[in-house]
Write a protein that binds this DNA or RNA. Structure first.
Lengths: 153, 153
DNA sequence: TCGCGATAATATGTATACTTACTATATCTC
DNA sequence: GAGATATAGTAAGTATACATATTATCGCGA
């Protein structure tokens, strides 16, 4: 269905292409992680991964680390705490801040998930050979670096 | 802030990079379109653009055209109808289907927005020169083609 | 033509994602 | 040390995005 011929303007635009890629990426992540017996979203995984490297950071720090805003991170943290993967305590140095730490269960989860997630990365860019895959990742990484340095606006 | 050194696993993965790009893309779209005096999201723009090329398609057809599911398209259509940019009528051939048509106001909107949206495409991939930009778009387009042909589930 | 599987929308519920506004704290400045 | 300013988190509201279930309708085959 949909006899190709994408005459639309949006179909030629990187913005639209990126949206499609994002969609597929999320979908495959969900499928594979679920098949492995877990109920973790891409964002939750990124949060756990960040928390493993910087235990005890507050929600604003986590927001910065995974490039989300504070409101979103607050919601994500709620779910991770509810699942028992992360613990949240009020900081002793700053009563405003909530320090997040990954729990043993959280550690176990990410350890089990790492190979699964590593594996599915190739699946989210179908149709590309190894060289093209690397090229894509390099270009995308270059953009995100440019965003981080100058894009703070 | 955030002294680079992205030691995390997810920061190296295309899935995560794509999420970042998607975010920036949406953000810039919003900014520029708003600055031009409109209140249209990327998805709403894609829907209008698709409708301009295939007036009278039903919601399922639009969902296929912009690669969203029917529930999402239903919500998007609600908002477009509410804004007066699209009209929705029950099909005479199939009482289940709702045919969507872009209104004059919708036409005027997309006509005014096209140059704006065309312009901002370069901004959503900062740090890339023209060759890299083209390369990125070519790779992304290749992936979406691969998704369309073989990726159906 | 009756029944049954397929399809179009809608309803419901979950999870992002961001904006703006508001509260509680910290910190900086005079 | 008090007031101004900035920051952490939450709350509320909007918009995607998708899965699943339900309803209405279609169309095919016996």
């Amino acid at each position: 269905m949909n006899e190709d011929s994408p005459k639309t303007v949006s179909s030629r635009m990187p913005g639209h292409l990126i949206r499609r890629l994002h969609q597929v990426s999320t979908h495959i992540f969900h499928q594979r992680v679920r098949a492995a017996g877990f109920d973790i979203t891409p964002v939750q995984f990124a949060a756990l991964d960040a928390l493993r490297h910087k235990p005890g950071i507050d929600q604003a720090g986590l927001a910065d680390a995974i490039a989300k805003d504070r409101a979103t991170v607050g919601d994500v943290a709620d779910r991770l705490v509810q699942k028992g993967l992360v613990s949240r305590t009020v900081s002793r140095h700053d009563k405003r801040a909530r320090e997040l730490t990954i729990t043993d269960k959280g550690e176990a989860t990410i350890t089990a998930l790492l190979p699964v997630v590593e594996q599915l990365q190739k699946e989210i860019l179908p149709g590309l050979d190894d060289a093209e895959f690397s090229q894509f990742v390099a270009l995308a990484a270059k953009v995100t670096r440019a965003i981080r340095s100058g894009g703070e606006r």
